[in-house]
Design a binder for these strands. Structure first.
Lengths: 335, 335
DNA sequence: CTGTTAGCGCCTTCAT
DNA sequence: ATGAAGGCGCTAACAG
């Protein structure tokens, strides 16, 4: 059984309210401060978070709900968010809904039941009806990666279409006409956006669209691996390949390496997401880098702001841009 | 402002204690049950976790403390633990201590301050003094991956030395004598154990130990990549290579592929940890697989048991074995 | 600067 | 099967 204010009271003779003030930054005589300090030490006193939460209605805990923990992008964002929030005294309760809309809703309610002060989520379900639940309970929500159709709230998004366009332009500028994309399933918002950006960019650059160059695959190493092999098996394989996320990029590289196909001599490649990878692979990979740290920082900041002052202006949407980091994996074709 | 028992009381005319019974599985007349049901619906009533916790002294929340979120092994374990615990009504508060002992201690206290009912951790600090804090507060701790020197508690460990030995034996059985290991830093418990297992296995198999074949590197793709290139640069490169974790394995494969070195014709390789990867890479990688799911399941179970019945027997330690899954990445040498 | 008092929302004897 | 009353540990007026 751990000690309480009452125990401190017994040891110091001070009243509960003085003790409370001490713990909440009020004015307390130095002499008394020290007395309390000593008592805390002796008693190994620790604040009871339940009692405190009961009054303050705050758990200093943020829910983080993502579609899948086994994804470098997601865990990297989580790592950064955790970092930042912890500096501010907040813990994160993490839920993974395994790319399942039903579970997403359940996990969302679960988080609310855990008295989180807010929820940061990378939404999966396109309708995102579950977000309404938070509104009813007055729990702020910050979205990452996509806006919810029916629910306006703070969000941090990346210009995914723009990111894909950037890559296509890089290929086009280097004279490529047969450009393929290895993309995740359309049901994933970011993947859809990147695919759309890709197609539009072909138009903008006056390039023909080859259906067989639009490969939709799982967002895994295997997905990238198999997709690449499918492309290589075409009568006329592409001269340029855009991989739409980290795991796919990895799979593509492994497949190309294995087939003994040289980058960029035989195929030009632009990867996605992971800067470390780009530096490791030789020749250095040209890569579309999402500003992971910034995404996390902005999401955390949006949340902290909301929690800080009860009534902020309206919705704030932060749109960040991906960057193209050039390596040597794109060959300049002569024309 | 959300509704409370009092609101239900107003709507139903029942007493608070009846309502409490209803929510805690007591005997309540069917008629009254329905009345409460209706009120809950109308009021959108949700139990206040703080108030409940104040009495029950349980948050239904488990702390999970790991050295680093950017590691496939860790996140994979977390994903499974989260899964299992959530099924039992528990949420997880995740903390990443960034391979830093000071932060580990702070994060541990932080978790305790968040009123977690228990802590599951992959400890980093070798002395693990911080674990004592949990004992004082009567918070059960389950360790993963290593036992703490000074603190006896439930744990799930893997026979790391045995895992390394298994790999060496596989190489030796195939006639290899020049076997290298690409291992993480010695300060990481599992890495130390695998390195030791490796050395012992050389002895057991009557193989000579070449210092230059014992490469210590970072547990990252770059680490594996650079380590491999270091090995390849030797006058007499090894004929067999054991990679001591997933990221290192990945880096090694990329490096070998790039150098145009064929597996297993020119070098035999055994990887670690990731079954998916082994299936993707061609030739299929022989791999030492840790039973991730089992590790998570056992850790979760140990914790749930502890929380279930206040006084269980003594310490329970579960030791699991890694498995060698054979692919075609180990060449049989003629002798 | 300190003490008194009345809750926060729920659970738990103890009666009825 | 239900109700009344007190308390879990902390906070927040309000006095002094």
């Amino acid at each position: 059984m751990s000690s309480t204010y009452k125990d401190i009271q017994r040891m110091t003779g001070l009243s509960l309210s003085t003790i409370s003030k001490y713990f909440n930054g009020g004015n307390v005589k130095d002499e008394n401060r020290r007395a309390i300090d000593r008592a805390v030490e002796k008693l190994d006193f620790h604040m009871n978070g339940f009692a405190r939460g009961l009054k303050s209605r705050r758990s200093k805990t943020i829910g983080v709900l993502i579609p899948e923990l086994n994804s470098t992008f997601n865990t990297s964002i989580i790592a950064d968010i955790e970092d930042i929030l912890r500096m501010h005294g907040y813990g994160i309760i993490v839920c993974d809904c395994h790319l399942n809309e039903q579970m997403e809703k359940e996990a969302f309610e679960f988080l609310l039941s855990k008295m989180v002060d807010g929820i940061i989520t990378i939404p999966f379900d396109k309708t995102s009806e579950h977000l309404q639940l938070a509104k009813m309970r007055n729990v702020p929500v910050v979205l990452i990666d996509r806006l919810a159709a029916g629910y306006k709230t703070d969000a941090v998004i990346v210009d995914n279409a723009g990111a894909a366009e950037m890559a296509v332009k890089e290929f086009a500028d280097n004279g490529h006409k047969n450009i393929a994309i290895l993309c995740g399933p359309n049901r994933i918002y970011t993947m859809e956006a990147r695919m759309n950006g890709f197609k539009e960019a072909l138009l903008k650059n006056h390039l023909e669209m080859h259906d067989e160059y639009l490969v939709s695959t799982e967002m895994t190493i295997s997905g990238g691996y198999e997709g690449t092999n499918r492309l290589l098996a075409l009568k006329k394989p592409p001269t340029a390949l855009l991989c739409a996320n980290y795991e796919i990029t990895l799979g593509a590289i492994i497949a190309l390496n294995e087939s003994g196909i040289r980058i960029p001599a035989e195929i030009s490649v632009i990867g996605f997401d992971n800067l470390t990878l780009s530096r490791v692979v030789k020749p250095r990979l040209t890569i579309v880098v999402q500003p992971m740290r910034e995404i996390a920082e902005n999401a955390a900041k949006l949340m902290l702001d909301r929690l800080g002052s009860e009534s902020l202006p309206g919705i704030r949407i932060v749109e960040l841009n991906a960057n193209l980091v050039r390596g040597e994996s794109v060959l300049k074709l002569k024309d």
